Computed example of a mutant assay.
Amino acid sequence: MINSLWIAKTGMSAQQTQLDVVSHNLANVSTTGFKRNFAVFEDLMYQNHRQVGSQSGDNAELPTGLHLGLGVNVGSTSRNFLQGGLENTGNQLDMAINGQGFFQVQMPDGTTAYTRAGNFTLNSTGEVVTPAGLRVLPGITVQRGDLIDIGADGTVSVTRAGVTTPGPRIQLANFINPAGLEPMGNNLFRETVASGAPEVGEPLTNSLGEIRHKFLENSNVNVVEELVTMIQTQRAYEMNSKAIQTSDQMLAKLSQL
């Protein structure tokens, strides 16, 4: 009877975590390049009261065992890297990746971070940077009045006073396990052991996607799906709460015997 109280408690805790994940998704439904998160549930260890296949008598063995579970746990949160919808903004510094890959961004400590959000801007020296002021690699610098054109293969062309000159070529990074990247906030990810080392290359090569100039990738959160998940989470939380109430009532009856 006491186990049922603990089991229901783990269910309520897990559903609360699920609601936290859903709330985070809904809060970022308009965040450029955001990828939907989801919780991964695992059942907890079991109490083995009777081993399956053990001997029940002469020349007889049990076809089933007696294993009582102890609840549920959120083993991890993962991320869905499906492509978000592309939106034409007309901004000459906006870029979107149509397919696999990440833009590379230089952190203040010199390390490289990765992002799907291509809503870039300029700093005071004319460098193309993220909204947080981090330099976009390999480094693009423009002057006032320059016109920038970026091809699907990452080729940058700068038109200044009617003269077009080639600029640096944008390279993308990809990972064997993008779900293993560590989120840092500000739409950035960090390489981890689980993600594997980055495979850097030019767009449209080695399974990397193309660059869509003057486009942005929208969040891949589906509001309807998240609301359905929220309702399911609420119902599951209520059922676990009801299990605690029922266990408490049964214990009260037992104490009266």
Results as ranks from 00 to 15, higher is better:
4 S>P: 09
10 T>D: 02
14 A>C: 08
15 Q>P: 05
25 N>T: 10
28 N>K: 14
30 S>E: 02
36 R>H: 04
39 A>T: 01
44 L>D: 05
52 V>I: 07
53 G>P: 08
54 S>N: 09
61 E>K: 12
66 L>Y: 12
69 G>K: 14
74 V>H: 05
76 S>K: 11
76 S>I: 07
81 F>M: 10
83 Q>H: 00
83 Q>P: 02
84 G>A: 11
86 L>H: 13
93 L>P: 07
97 I>L: 00
99 G>N: 03
104 Q>L: 03
105 V>K: 10
109 D>Y: 03
112 T>M: 00
121 T>G: 10
122 L>M: 11
124 S>W: 13
132 A>T: 08
146 D>H: 01
148 I>T: 13
153 D>L: 03
153 D>V: 00
157 S>Y: 05
159 T>V: 12
161 A>Y: 15
162 G>C: 04
165 T>Y: 12
167 G>D: 10
172 L>T: 03
173 A>I: 04
175 F>V: 11
184 M>D: 06
184 M>F: 07
186 N>A: 14
187 N>E: 15
192 T>M: 07
192 T>G: 03
195 S>V: 12
196 G>M: 06
196 G>S: 09
202 E>H: 01
203 P>C: 02
205 T>S: 02
206 N>G: 05
213 H>D: 00
215 F>W: 14
219 S>Y: 11
222 N>E: 07
223 V>R: 01
227 L>H: 08
228 V>I: 12
233 T>G: 08
238 E>L: 05
240 N>Q: 05
241 S>D: 01
243 A>L: 06
244 I>E: 04
253 K>V: 05
254 L>K: 06
